[in-house]
């Protein structure tokens, strides 16, 4: 027996993905993993847009356009973030957020 996937299945997956990303962002201490968690959040948004586009607003292209731009921007953001992380590694010899603790309170 096969279940035809509906809007609610996709929304369930994307919301779960969003909160997994948030959880990872809050608990992981490695900067690269935190960046990966942000990518999870952005991908959950992409899934949301495509699901809404397919099931609720077929024929409108807005959601698909948005997805394409999110993917591009995520790449740009990751490029800058990784450059900053490399520089942080040069000065701190580590990419653990716990070690970057000069600035406090």
């Amino acid at each position: 027996m096969t279940i035809e996937p509906g809007l609610y299945h996709l929304l369930f997956i994307s919301t779960a993905l969003f909160f997994i990303g948030v959880y990872g962002f809050f608990t992981r201490r490695n900067l690269i993993t935190m960046l990966m968690s942000i990518e999870l959040i952005l991908n959950s948004v992409n899934l949301n847009f495509i699901a809404f586009d397919k099931y609720l607003w077929p024929g409108k292209m807005d959601g698909l356009f948005f997805t394409v731009f999110i993917i591009a921007i995520a790449a740009a953001e990751a490029a800058v973030a990784i450059a900053i992380i490399i520089n942080l590694y040069r000065s701190h010899q580590s990419i653990d957020v716990e070690n970057a603790e000069d600035l406090k309170y």
Partner: peptide, 11 residues
């Protein structure tokens, strides 16, 4: 400190 501030900002 500059790189630490930048890391906090981008994240």
């Amino acid at each position: 400190r500059s790189s630490e501030g930048a890391m906090k900002m981008i994240l």
